[in-house]
Design a protein around this nucleic acid. Structure first.
Lengths: 241, 241
DNA sequence: TAGTGGTCTAGACCACCCT
DNA sequence: GGGTGGTCTAGACCACTAA
């Protein structure tokens, strides 16, 4: 473990247990550098981490302060990003299932070529899967992946986790993804597989997943039952440049 | 302008105009430090900015590489975060309106106390506004703000921009916000004001906005017409600690 | 083993807040 | 004007990749 992360963790613990009171000024960076037997630059790096994590904020010329809502975030590991959650409480007694409706290989459509930076002749997998919780279907997922990047997909892979396969078997590291969210009226597939009534909408999430090197890996449209899935995320107010 | 941002901008220009080819290795940090007459630490800071912006990625021991999808992001100013967009193209000929349906002061509900960290006796504004594009209503926004933090709100303020008022008149700096997104069936208000039919759903966004010091500032629920609004965002795959 | 990025230091100067 | 955070340097050592 590198030093600035260790310092950040220690300070986080102190915020959590109240050594540094909420909404008050922390010791200045020079004092912290002395206390942790390190340089001020390292302290600054640690505080930058905590700033991004939403625990503290700094005012140049004034000091470093604990955020009022810091305690809610002071738990151990922090991950920035969105979170797709089931509205229903999921525990051990519940049964999550995964049913493959379609598994095909074909040439991509124009939209798919554009999103995945493919040529018309580059074959893709087309996969349609249904997610089921306690015999109640809640999401219908339509995925397109280029064969060139993700070879060797089988029904067995789909039954387990495709992302695990891509990560562990193919050794591909995921990067960012871009999503668009809409509400939509149910179409024929939704009515059939998600058992949507005429007035029961779906939450449609369109996503392009990239590898760490920026190559588009997957283009997917997921349609969620409106009464079983919601998405939540923290939006940091970070501007760059 | 500080040096590391200048360096980052210059490198971004080079990526954009093709001086550094996509998917190839960039010059190493020591060379860049020499070229820009600066230290390696400063180069590293510049590359960190570009990494967060999604333009490059580094592999320790190997080098710094341009992402394949970098060009889409190489435009001038970059902002991380979500984006609520109107599906319809908006240009000068279009007319955006803002109609206040309700403007009240009252004591908060239990949920509002919890979300805004208030006591039962702390009065709040309750505001309901309708957003209209070309005489077509597209969003219905319900906001709760504590009087103690945001005093002096008037109908005139609501008619213009409440966020401008908070930022410019009150001098409050915004921080992060937390959002939850759902699809929902239209309720009576949606039918009346958004002119939703029985099977026209809404996209419901619940948001808590915080100040830079972490104090909850606003608790809002916005309901958008499904055929006029969508939300999109980039999800960086960043883990901290 | 050579080359590259990641971290760290001690000291310096500047920008900004506050009184 | 004193105190604080933001930036920057030159040099060092370590961790990792790739041949």
């Amino acid at each position: 473990m590198v030093k600035y992360k260790e310092v950040a963790n220690e300070i986080r613990k102190r915020i959590k247990n109240g050594s540094y009171p909420l909404e008050e000024r922390m010791p200045d960076q020079t004092s912290l550098a002395k206390e942790f037997h390190t340089s001020r630059v390292t302290i600054k790096k640690a505080l930058d981490l905590l700033t991004v994590a939403g625990l503290v904020y700094t005012i140049q010329g004034s000091g470093t302060y604990i955020k009022q809502n810091a305690l809610q975030l002071a738990e151990s590991s922090i991950r920035i990003g969105q979170n797709v959650g089931l509205t229903a409480q999921v525990d051990e007694r519940m049964h999550l299932e995964n049913k493959t409706i379609k598994f095909d290989v074909r040439f991509p459509t124009e939209e798919e070529c554009e999103q995945l930076l493919l040529k018309k002749e580059d074959p893709v997998y087309e996969i349609e899967r249904l997610r089921i919780l306690n015999k109640q279907p809640y999401s219908l997922e339509h995925s397109i992946l280029p064969l060139s990047l993700v070879p060797g997909v089988t029904k067995d892979v789909l039954q387990k986790s495709m992302y695990d396969y891509i990560r562990n078997e193919l050794g591909i590291v995921f990067g960012e993804n871009r999503q668009t969210i809409r509400a939509a009226q149910p179409d024929e597939l939704d009515k059939e597989f998600l058992q949507c009534g005429e007035n029961e909408p779906v939450l449609e999430v369109t996503k392009v997943m990239f590898t760490s090197s920026g190559t588009p890996l997957e283009f997917s449209k997921v349609r969620h039952r409106f009464d079983m899935v919601e998405m939540s995320f923290v939006n940091l107010n970070t501007e760059i440049y």
